[in-house]
């Protein structure tokens, strides 16, 4: 007999997906409002999932494995893009050359314009600052460089020899100003412990006093919670 308040006796069948249509609707309405029954349902759904182990394990073909693992690349590239590079590979070097020529022409035109205006912007590669980040006791072999341009909100961060982390963790960059820490983003490193990242901030990066990198849960934290591995001061 079903309990009118909590139809728990229908939960096993619901987990199996074998309730009749009318019963499903009524139960779903109840589940929307009852956390206790939702918790019970999760337990029965776990039982249902384990029933799959009653079937013998089986190996799909290697061809199928290759198709499945190619999914991410196919999902990312629109068909026309894939066809362009598969069908007309000779166009690629020409396109690259054309791009460089265009950049050169635009750069020269810009310089000409600045000279006509009588001023050349003071920002540029000559004024780029390179801040060295030192490894802490937690990662003594690691090092990093933050390349930033005064007044700019974009910088490049390079790190070396940071230990690759457990999949549940990531490194997080902190931008420090007057003791306050703002996240500069999270990242993972390659097998050799290196990474190169483009950092963007809402204010010029040279306005911060210091930078630090800590180990945080995957996806990052609102504030530093883990071990500090790299750090460097811009001022003070």
């Amino acid at each position: 007999m079903t309990n009118r308040t909590h139809p728990t006796e229908d939960l096993p069948a619901y987990a199996l997906g074998c309730l009749d249509h009318g019963e499903v609707k009524e139960l779903r309405e109840h589940l929307r409002q009852c956390a206790a029954c939702r918790s019970e349902l999760r337990a029965f759904e776990a039982v249902a999932a384990n029933l799959a182990l009653a079937a013998p394990s089986a190996e799909p073909s290697q061809a199928l494995r290759d198709r499945v693992l190619a999914l991410p690349r196919r999902q990312r590239s629109p068909d026309w893009f894939v066809r362009l590079f598969e069908t007309w590979p000779r166009l690629l070097p020409a396109a690259t050359l054309a791009a460089f020529i265009l950049i050169g022409v635009l750069g020269w035109s810009t310089l000409q314009l600045w000279q006509q205006r009588g001023s050349v912007p003071e920002t540029g590669l000559r004024q780029m600052q390179l801040l060295k980040l030192q490894g802490t006791a937690a990662a003594p072999e690691s090092s990093g460089t933050l390349a930033l341009t005064p007044g700019e909100r974009v910088a490049v961060l390079e790190v070396q020899s940071l230990p690759p982390l457990d999949p549940a963790k990531q490194y997080q960059l902190w931008l420090i100003k007057a003791g306050r820490r703002t996240s500069g983003g999270v990242f993972s490193v390659a097998a050799d412990g290196s990474a190169r990242l483009l950092i963007t901030a809402t204010t010029p990066l040279d306005s911060f006093d210091a930078f630090g990198i800590t180990i945080e849960p995957y996806g990052g934290s609102p504030g530093p919670t883990g071990q500090k591995v790299l750090g460097g001061k811009l001022r003070g």
Binding site: A52, A55, S57, A58, E59
Partner: peptide, 10 residues
């Protein structure tokens, strides 16, 4: 892959 394919095949 083994357990999922096994279930599907079954």
């Amino acid at each position: 892959r083994g357990v999922v394919f096994g279930l599907l095949l079954r």
